[in-house]
Computed example of a mutant assay.
Amino acid sequence: MLHNLLTPLSDEFIFFNLFRYLTFRSGAAVLTALVVSFVLGPAVIRWLKKKQREGQPIRDDGPESHLVTKQGTPTMGGVLILLAVAISTLLWADLRNGYVWVILFITTGFGLVGFADDYLKLTRRSHKGVSSRIRLAVEIAISLIAAVWVIHLTGAQLDTALAVPLFKDVLFDLGWFFVALMVFVVVGASNAVNLTDGLDGLAIVPVMIAAGCFALISYLVGNAVFADYLQLHFVEGTGELAVFCAALVGASLGFLWFNAPPAMVFMGDTGSLSVGSALGGIAVITKHELVLAVIGGLFVLETVSVIVQVASYKLFGKRVFRMAPLHHHFEKKGWREETIVVRFWIIAAILALIGLSTLKLR
């Protein structure tokens, strides 16, 4: 909004020329989201505690320590993330850019699905919220609308194309199968983050790392000069998504202040589904869907551990892990929660560096 309002005045007031630059607006978006989180955080947490006197329902079949350490902690903290991201993005992004509205649509839509899920869990005092079929159907519907929207916005050469990392000239035209790809990536990413969100601070830092990586990727892919130098596929307009990613970094950092062990609030499905879907959507728009699987490799590992566990038990009647997702396996082995969280953060950082290296390796 500030870009649209103040940039036209730059001829008269040279200071307003700053608002032309993505780097300036991205930095401002980080700080704005961080300040919003710090200012609104205490009030949001007080409100959630007032509405949720008993806190998030704790699964009886989960790690025994959670019945003590997590009892009474409110959930739905993702509301704080959504507020910070939305306010910061609307302030600093170019609101004439269609990609910004697509990502806001995906993020808000999945956030509302997560909010409904969290609300039903709280009112029923159960870990069961919206039925899995209804939830999946709504997630697919949101992703379908977003996919068609993205095809409409993207140039003809790339609108339904899949780029392959490490190969500068390889593009697969998927046709309308591109819609299925975007649905798979967005829904998969959202639920992968959701599965990872099981310990204090565990999911939010990898989200912040991934958002930082895609802020850089969006900026480079949306800049014709840098995209040509790095031999990336130039997607006009995607640079503006760097502002959204920067806002997500700031909101994540602010949320971590309240979610660090011992957590004052959990993000819940409201947060995990929304931020995961945003990362998935940005990866598809920037033609880095496959790179997301590397940068967000921790989320992939957590999801695969659940798939392997379920498949093994149904097929052979045996469990591969003591408990899934993977972080619970290490809890059952006796690792301290803080140890698991920090080591998973390290893994996320290493995978992010590997993913970023693909920008130069062509």
Rank of each mutant, 00 (worst) to 15 (best):
A251K: 08
T154E: 13
F266R: 00
F226Q: 09
L171K: 14
D11G: 13
V44M: 13
R53I: 12
G129W: 01
A211E: 05
W257S: 12
I106R: 02
L326M: 11
A352L: 02
T69Y: 10
T32M: 00
G77P: 00
L166H: 10
A210Y: 04
Y119D: 01
D173E: 11
T23H: 10
L253W: 07
E236V: 06
G239L: 06
V205F: 03
A283H: 04
L83E: 01
L67E: 15
A141N: 04
L120H: 07
V294D: 02
G212D: 08
H327N: 09
A141G: 11
P42D: 13
D61N: 08
R25Q: 06
A348L: 07
G198V: 12
G237Q: 11
L9G: 05
Q71C: 11
S272H: 01
G296K: 05
F38L: 09
T154W: 05
N194S: 12
R322Y: 15
G268L: 00
D61C: 08
I106D: 10
A215W: 05
F24Y: 06
L326H: 11
A211V: 04
A141W: 06
A263W: 00
K287A: 03
Q231W: 08
A43I: 09
Y21W: 14
A33Q: 09
A203G: 02
G62E: 11
E54K: 15
I14P: 01
F172Y: 14
V36I: 14
E331V: 02
Q231R: 14
W101V: 07
I45M: 02
T89G: 07
I87A: 06
P206L: 13
V193S: 10
I58L: 09
L95S: 09
V275Y: 01
I209H: 03
I106A: 07
A260K: 12
S26T: 13
L112G: 02
Q56T: 12
